[in-house]
Design a protein around this nucleic acid. Sequence first.
RNA 1: GGGCCCGUAGCUCAGCCCGGUAGAGCAGGCGGCUCUUAACCGCAAGAUCAGGGGUUCGAAUCCCCUCGGGCCCGCCA
Length: 491
Amino acid sequence: MTDEGPLERERRGKVERIREEGREPYPWSFEGRVTTEEVRAAATSLAPGAEASDRSFRVAGRLRAIRVHGRTAFADLEDQAGALQLLLNEDTVGGERFRTILRDLDPGDVVGAEGTAARSKRGEPSLRVRDVTLLAKAIAPPPEKWHGLQDVEERLRRRYLDLLSSAESRELFRARSRLVQEIRRFLDDAGFLEVETPILLPIAGGAAAQPFVTQSSYLDAEVQLRISIELPLKRLLVGGLERVYELGRVFRNEDLDSVHSPEFTELEAYWAYADYHDMRRLTERLFEHLADRVLEFLPDSEGARRGAHDFRPPFATVDFVDELERQSGIAGIATKTQEELRALARSVGSTVPDDSPAGTFLEKLFEHYVEPHLKAVTFVVDHPAATTPLAKRHRSKPGRVERFEIFYRSTELGNAYTELNDPVEQERRFREQLAARGVDAYAYDEDFVRALRHGLPPSTGIGFGVDRLVMGLTGAESIKEILLFPLTRAR
RNA sequence: GGGCCCGUAGCUCAGCCCGGUAGAGCAGGCGGCUCUUAACCGCAAGAUCAGGGGUUCGAAUCCCCUCGGGCCCGCCA
């Protein structure tokens, strides 16, 4: 991968010349560095044109722009804390050295600078430079200094260029990491234990999705990448770990679009001796916590302002069946047969296979009639039993399960149940799924049923699409905006 | 899987409708300039117009195919 254009040849030539002159274009370290923010702070109290020559600072970062005015020059140096103007003057650094520095450097180079805090005559906080050291010569030119990298494909494929040319992009990804950190902090404080369970499994279960399939040489057998974290975590509740969570990548062998990625970050939390009402309260507290923090992470973001507002409780609640009947005008929808539901789903354009379980058709109808209206954070509760084989039947609504899904901007963010813990019923539900044989069937995990036979305490659990949650909180329109390296075709 | 749109210099864009030798800005080169901050001024250079095929005297421009990407629909969460 060597793009050797004339621009690169020019810069490679500089590297050679620097070496010939006895300087190192890629030195090993730069000691005693402070942030650009520290220098700015020291400079802002000065009068325009003044300099605080009592203290010397060393800063390092990437050169953005260089403005040469004969025997004075300005350069913008950017580090993680922000940007700082370097003020170079022939009188300060010496005529010979001044010319060498300007000859060596190009925008995009990583440099260290030493000097004193100062303000330019126009008032810009600056570092009056004694000397500049090249720390890493950039032989490939950076993106355009004003417009940055606009090409969407390039921004995704070469995220490092997007990040180095866009402070907004850096801030967004930093915010994502901090939000994830806050999720961990919240759950840790609520007494949950973070665990790590296998990604490679004999059969991927806990959801209905196409797995990625690979091969274990050791086992001489096919293994699958997990599509959810549900079943191993519930086994841990059987084992007596009463509050557990895992925050990690799951894989589904499906399309990449604005709300789906073949690999995405899922949070699943399981809680013994609690039910889905408890989980809802915990979820609301989590959302409130994240809404409190997101504006600290993205103070200038319109999207984050809206996220902080929208994720603040209380939230709307709708009953799955009541709302579906209300929006569709179809009565008695939960008691219809698979054939009747299939016909209804076909009438609204669904093309899922004929042999899909009844629950799949109900979900298609819900997607068509109800989801477009779920703009605000909304808890959809008490789904028909046919929609999931892993939730416990509702204690008072016949034919329903104790389940809630959370929607925001018409996209599902999370899914929670009072967990089914009756091993006999669990086995029956898995068998029903197999009998339906549709692509949506949940895999029958025999060992999971065996675990339930040893007694799963009454429990609740939840799964979140963390990427979607981050999208909602930050106002991102596409999952690709908050994935550092979304999957792309080889080029 | 279906539909629509996009791909021109390292980067940001014009040119495409209506075919006639490919244009600018940034970055880079050379020269000038001691307070600019998208610095400025002058000169020179930089392009298999995504790739392939076709129509035509002549194709960046019209047509077909391929590749890559975006958006919408379908499917999957």
